[in-house]
Design a binder for these strands. Structure first.
Length: 587
RNA sequence: CGGGAAGUGGCGCAGCGGUAGCGUACCUGCUUUGGGAGCAGGGGGUCGGGAGUUCAAAUCUCCCCUUCCCGACCA
């Protein structure tokens, strides 16, 4: 039983000045956590109970699938990370340190290398597979900007599991098991979530999905179909590709002088204003133009190359989407100097005529998937003050490839069913990932198959942010009075408040009720503080957020206690004699 | 790394050249007990750090550090 008279906690009347988001404010005010350093938090007793509940639920769902728990150190040697290149790839985000002999070590940002090496250490036969092992461990990432309390920390707790299979079918099976286990886990944690397609990015591998909690304070933008079940991180959105248009329908392309039209808007305005350029059936819009943007790519080996991207003029290039596409290369701006070095590029009037690996400018040219055969475009003519109209894809120009880099707009058609897409914000609470053989290959994890042949193991990695989940649950379950925990993660099932004077019968009655509740299997938080006014007790109860609050107060004289549902605020008086039965029957 | 704000008792803040304050929290006593009670008394702060200006610096100047917010970044 938790007794408030002796519990190590202090609630704050006011919001801490350094907390912005609701979960952070309330967790600090309610005495669940304290900040120890930026992005590092101390768990107080109430917070630690909640944390362990979350951990327990995750663990139970992992164990249910037959996954086995292990535990690695957080302090790791440099060498494995050197082999996979992540010692340098992680950049400033890696906490590096040296031991007394000046040997490099690191605080683990994630554990792929160690898991791979551990399996390599112990296993060498196909008969040992499949295998899934996991841990719940603290991770360290020197984030440039930790924020929002538990939602983005520098030291945080994560459940990470890794699957090891002989072939792709096995990997798919391990992946599906995790997907199901995660769905059950988030259900039990009382967290709404959406599963979105994600980019596998630099990690390599094929399939990757993120579990996002829909939260405005989240840092991920995703789209969701208004009709079907399609959902994707904006980085991974696949644009709905329109049907090709017969080439014969397109008028001849022609070049016009379009002075002083360096931007899309000035161009469209001019086109609509001039009799010789006006479109007979409707106004020209930005979507009729083809915007060609040039960026510089910095490749991991340090070399640079230019890339031209063609998108419909009503859309910007989304740098996050572009980065995800060109990863591991990094994007740098194409500068005035770069323009000066390439006389075939006329800034403001760049057109497909000069773009492409075999064209005059010699720059790789990739276009948005909406640019299909037969589509007609107004675009730069590669001459100052001149544009070309009805330049038709497949007839007048082609690209070297297609790229998903244009920004996604709310209302864009769903690639699966065509209904409008909605844009929403969320925070990543889980990520499942088919890694493939990248780590196994780099670290030499192989087994012998039935034929005695060496086979590289294929892997998956799967993560749930445990401490982040606590923050996200709090963020999703709170109101202006405090936290509202889902029962299974709450620090207690019942919060019993005794009001009245120290000499009144309420306190001993509350004690007895608390004991009876515990005997019946309920977890109890008892406010047995004396000399504390009822107002303080009620406010603290709302702040703590235990799902059911029982007030042993003035109704006691009539043998009644008050039950309050923290979430709905509903109150009702019930006979003290029936209280335990009623409480144990609550969902 | 860019832009903004801010560092003064545990927490929230005021003070902006002249004895370091208020609210809250904490301690003692009395009163009070259904939505953050009242009175009285009390403990607790090198005013982020350093250098400078001045008879005198929390306050002015310079440098540094730290924190928070927005952006960049974020397997």
């Amino acid at each position: 039983m938790l007794r408030l008279s002796s519990l190590f906690v202090r609630t704050l009347r006011e919001d801490p000045a350094d907390a912005e988001v609701a979960s952070h404010r309330l967790l600090v005010r309610g005495g669940y956590i304290r900040r120890a350093a930026p992005g590092c938090f101390t768990w107080l007793p109430l917070g630690w109970i909640v944390y362990r509940n979350v951990e327990r639920i995750i663990r139970e769902e992992m164990d249910r699938e037959g996954f086995q728990e292990v535990h690695f150190p957080a302090l790791l040697p440099r060498e494995p990370y050197e082999i996979t290149g992540r010692w340098t790839d992680y950049g400033d985000n890696l906490f590096r340190l040296k031991d007394r002999r000046d040997i490099d070590m690191l605080l683990a940002p994630t554990h792929e290398e160690m898991f791979t090496l551990l399996v390599k250490d112990l296993y060498s036969s196909y008969k040992d597979l499949p295998l899934v092992i996991y841990q719940i461990q603290n991770k360290f990432r020197d984030e440039a900007r930790p924020r929002a309390g538990l939602l983005r920390g520098r030291e945080f707790s994560m459940k990470d599991s890794y699957s090891f299979d002989l072939d792709d079918a096995g990997l798919q099976n391990s992946y599906d098991k995790h997907r199901a286990a995660y769905q059950r886990t988030f259900e039990r944690l009382g967290m709404p979530y959406v599963i979105v397609s994600a980019m596998s990015g630099a990690m390599g591998g094929s399939a990757s999905e993120e579990f996002l909690a829909p939260l405005a304070v989240g840092e991920d933008t995703y789209v969701r179909c208004s009709t079907c079940d399609y959902a994707a991180n904006t980085e991974a959105v696949q644009v709905a590709v329109p049907d090709a248009i017969p080439l014969a329908d397109a008028p001849q392309a022609r070049v016009h002088a379009t002075p002083n039209t360096p931007t899309i808007q000035t161009l469209v305005d001019l086109m609509n204003a001039r009799d010789d350029l006006r479109r007979p059936d409707r106004e020209w819009t930005a979507a009729d133009t083809l915007k060609n943007l040039i960026v510089k790519l910095k490749h991991p080996d340090g070399t640079h190359s230019a890339l031209a991207i063609g998108v419909p003029g009503d859309r910007e290039v989304d740098m996050k989407r572009l980065e995800a596409q060109v990863s591991p290369a990094e994007i740098e701006p194409f500068t005035e100097e770069d323009f000066a070095k390439n006389p075939h590029l006329v800034k403001g009037y760049i057109g497909p005529g000069s773009l492409g690996e075999n064209k005059s400018a010699g720059i790789r040219f990739v276009v948005d998937p909406r640019i299909v055969d037969g589509t007609r475009w107004i675009t730069g003519a590669n001459e100052l003050g001149r544009h070309v109209v009805d330049l038709t894809y497949g007839r007048d120009f082609t690209a070297d490839g297609v790229i998903e880099a244009a920004e996604v707009h709310g209302g864009d058609p769903c690639p699966k069913c065509g209904s409008p897409l909605e844009i929403a914000r969320g925070i990543e609470i889980g990520h499942i990932f088919q890694l493939g053989r990248k780590y196994a290959e780099a670290l030499g994890l192989t087994v012998l198959d039935q034929n005695g042949k060496t086979r590289v193991v294929t892997m998956g990695s799967y993560g749930i942010g445990v401490s982040r989940a606590v923050g996200a649950i709090a963020e999703l379950n709170c109101d202006d009075r405090g936290l509202v925990w889902p029962r299974e993660v709450a620090p207690a099932d019942v919060h019993i408040v005794a009001t009245g004077k120290p000499s009144d019968p309420q306190l001993p009655a509350a004690e007895q009720l608390a004991i009876a509740c515990e005997t019946a299997g309920l977890r109890v938080l008892l406010d047995d503080r004396v000399g504390v006014s009822p107002g303080i007790k009620f406010n603290d109860a709302d702040l703590f957020g235990v799902p059911t609050i029982v007030v042993v107060g003035r109704g006691l004289a009539d043998g009644m206690v008050e039950l309050k549902d923290r979430r709905t605020g509903d109150r009702r008086d019930v006979p003290l004699a029936d209280a335990v039965a009623i409480l144990t029957a609550l969902p």
